[in-house]
Design a binder for these strands. Structure first.
Lengths: 146, 146
DNA sequence: TGAGTTGTTTTGAGTAACTAAAAACAACTG
DNA sequence: CAGTTGTTTTTAGTTACTCAAAACAACTCA
């Protein structure tokens, strides 16, 4: 897909979510579809190359708009800055390395939303479940073995 | 159990974890065994009543020591300050109200550590799984219905 | 097409929740 | 009870955002 075709896709996504199409939004969507699990600072650096007049605050604003429109998912692993990914609408979980904080996707082996079934709701209406695994990624295992 | 008996229990716990017994530590353990899911600021206020010379930084230090000794569990719900609880060693999860941020415990209906079984490990060594449910608590449902 | 409206971005400032470092102090050891 | 080692206090500093107001740009409709 050419750069222009990608842009059209992002523009359509923005429009059907009821958002105005702006250069920062298209750029952020582009970066998030290239790489997963990026924090605001990293996204800012990447957008800055394309749009040198952009500010970090704008990136925060764009991300908030995209998240609340459902185009982007925000994950907030304990102890790190929030991360954003544009894989949205499925039920995947995350695996976080305790050492390097790297995040990878996981699909739950049990199938569809197993953990959406707690035993005691206490009157809660559950709207989402979040599953995070913590451990050592293969690289940090090697380092730890030294 | 009397106040003194409780203190002895906490002192023993500290000692068997290899930690020195100090007034701030005993006080923090006491508060955490009375109430669940407290943040550092709340714990500080409660300890301050007993030990007016204590500082917030000490509370952070005490909590860090207790967590790394395994006597206290730290939970970090997205969008709130970290919370601490002394129910430790079991596999319970948490339910967080999207509106008031209240946290309650849940036991997973599937049984023991269901979610410790992701399908694709990618070489990770998993050491913990964390499950959080997000929704509306019964009180905030009433408010929302108005 | 272009004026108006509404929503975005920019700029600048401010905050919450920690984290770090050094000096004063207290708990356990023998 | 003196010494050592680990804690606490005090003071600063940082990270990751959040807020507000003014400048600006996207879409709408004549």
């Amino acid at each position: 897909m050419s750069k222009d075709e990608r842009h059209v896709v992002f523009q359509d996504r923005l429009r059907s979510a009821g958002l105005k199409v702006t250069a920062p939004r298209v750029a952020v969507l582009g970066i998030l579809s290239d790489r997963e699990h990026l924090d605001a600072e990293t996204i800012f650096s990447a957008v800055f190359v394309l749009l040198p007049r952009i500010s970090l605050q704008t990136v925060y604003g764009v991300l908030a708009a995209l998240v609340s429109a459902g185009l982007v998912r925000k994950i907030e692993p304990a102890g790190s800055a929030a991360l954003y990914e544009c894989r949205v609408g499925d039920n995947h979980h995350h695996m976080v390395c305790l050492t390097c904080k790297r995040v990878e996707n996981v699909d739950c082996v049990i199938g569809a939303s197993p953990c959406l079934t707690p035993s005691n709701f206490n009157g809660f209406i559950i709207s989402a479940a979040e599953v995070n695994f913590w451990g050592l990624c293969s690289e940090c295992q090697l380092v730890a073995a030294l």
